[in-house]
Design a protein around this nucleic acid. Sequence first.
RNA 1: UUCGGAGCCAGGUCUUCGCUCUGUUCUUUGACCCAGCCAUGCGCGGGUAAAGCCGCGCUCUUCGAACGGAGAGGAAAGUCCGGACACCAGAGGGCAGGAUUCCCAUCGAAAGAGGGGGCACGGCGCGUCAAGGCGCCGUGACGGACAGUGUCACAGAAAACAAACCGCCCCGCGGGCAACUGCGGGGCAAGGGUGAAAAGGUGGAGCAAGAGCCCACCGCGCCGACCGGCAACGGCGGCGGCACGAAAAACCCAAUCCGGUGCAAGACUGAAUAGGGGACUCGGCGGCCCGCCGGAUAGUCCCGGGUAAGUCGCAUCCCGCCGGUCGCAGGUGCGGACAACCGCAUCGCCCGGCGCGACUGGUCCGCCUCGGCGGACCUGAGAGAAAUGAAGGCCCUCCCGCUCCGGCGGGAGACAGAAUCCGGCUUAUCGGCUCCGAAGCUA
RNA 2: GCGGGCGUAGUACAGCGGUAGUAUGCGUGGUUCCCAACCAUGAGACGGGGUUUCGACUACCCCCGCCCGCA
Length: 127
Amino acid sequence: MPHGPAMGLRAGQRLRRNADFRALREQGRRLDCGAFLLTWRPRSEPIMRPTRVGVVASRIAVGGAVERNRAKRRLRELFRRHQELMPPGLDLVLTARRSLNRLPFSELEQRFIHVCRQLAPARPPHV
RNA sequence: UUCGGAGCCAGGUCUUCGCUCUGUUCUUUGACCCAGCCAUGCGCGGGUAAAGCCGCGCUCUUCGAACGGAGAGGAAAGUCCGGACACCAGAGGGCAGGAUUCCCAUCGAAAGAGGGGGCACGGCGCGUCAAGGCGCCGUGACGGACAGUGUCACAGAAAACAAACCGCCCCGCGGGCAACUGCGGGGCAAGGGUGAAAAGGUGGAGCAAGAGCCCACCGCGCCGACCGGCAACGGCGGCGGCACGAAAAACCCAAUCCGGUGCAAGACUGAAUAGGGGACUCGGCGGCCCGCCGGAUAGUCCCGGGUAAGUCGCAUCCCGCCGGUCGCAGGUGCGGACAACCGCAUCGCCCGGCGCGACUGGUCCGCCUCGGCGGACCUGAGAGAAAUGAAGGCCCUCCCGCUCCGGCGGGAGACAGAAUCCGGCUUAUCGGCUCCGAAGCUA
RNA sequence: GCGGGCGUAGUACAGCGGUAGUAUGCGUGGUUCCCAACCAUGAGACGGGGUUUCGACUACCCCCGCCCGCA
């Protein structure tokens, strides 16, 4: 992001491969945030890369296709609005829980900011 | 106002921050492979001993930026039908399997849809002793049960070439004063009872008692070369006293139609690793070459199959003229045990043009006219762990609470999310609008 | 996305169109000093809705839920 605060969320910042999701599921560390579950692990390349994110919303946890789309959009929006708080060089998966679509967005934002601060000292950005 | 039917809409708007695709301009990266290595996208011009050097333009690719444009549904759903499209199979025909099923015409590519008619059943009204009949409304997967096979439990005497428990009646013998009754023989099928269904119905005549035994009306079956109707079918006439029961949404039969698989179809590109094949190096036979043999090894190069992955399929369409860009050189046969590879033969080609094929052109209105012209038809999503959103303000609709009747506060806004496309069917659905029909109220 | 199959007691399965069974589990009683085993006995189900039929777990249609395959 060459200018301004990084607010975008392009295709290069999203997890797109089944292998990436499988690696997160097998090796990632999990943080329970109530309405959603955050799984993370450092990216395999040693060179610093931007943090990538993937979202998961299952039908049994959230509901039908409309609710699943809505949950995934809200999770992506959370990351997009607050990605500057997240240390770089990670792969994340945000998994929706049943209560996600019932909570107001401001509540989710507070929880996400909290978990970002939790994650930042655990893995400081090596500049 | 209520009910029914048909059609349409699917909260609106503004601001900020975002996503996917796309147009223009600018910007970043790069230009498969082969010709020993590195380098060289294309064209034009310059420059040089020769250049891979320099400049300009263009094509594709790629990281971004700015300004524009487009961006979920009526069901996108269920995947129940039909088609397009793709691959596989296939001379033709048959079997198996599946679908459809009163008649007529219409729309449609087909599925299907709506319309009219017929028949059956149900409800209401009129009518009848009762039925038959007439009228209105509704419902119907509505071909065939004399082509065949099988089924009809329980109850009941009897359940499909009917049968006789109770019962009714007559005769004989016995008992009793009698009413009646016991036994035996015979007649009957009206009544009772069972059942989903008991083998025509009602009325009369008749009889010992009864019965289509007979008669009238109705119903039913068969026949008709008759009448009406395109037909389904209806009517009429004759014959038969009268079973021929139900169920094909049991198997089945008849008629008509249907190849299979599905975009995860399929086409192309294609690493790494493993494995396969070939050539050379290698070992053996040889003084050497050709050739032949070997492989349990190693190396180099090549080849096809093929995995991950990627691209296309895939995003309005059609016609004519004009313009632009791209493509158009290998094919066939034989031989070498052979797919690559090699050799030979044969047909054809090389530059340009014509021609053929593909792609492209436009997006608020008006004017200027440079971003092509004219016409028809219609409005246009194309993602890929999968875009079409998030937050806030105002308005609209509904609900709740408060009210000084002006309003104020809070909450809610249905069902539901494209995945190759199109046409139907079914299911879910807050509310609103228009039209038609019926009933009620008011004037 | 495309295609195929299955729903019966708590569980695993049977069930030519006619009273829904079997095993195990559960309850009660007996046996035993107690438990297990054993004996006796009892409760408990056709995923919903409609159609055909005298009658549907069964046939037909529509929903709901679950499972499997296909690059």
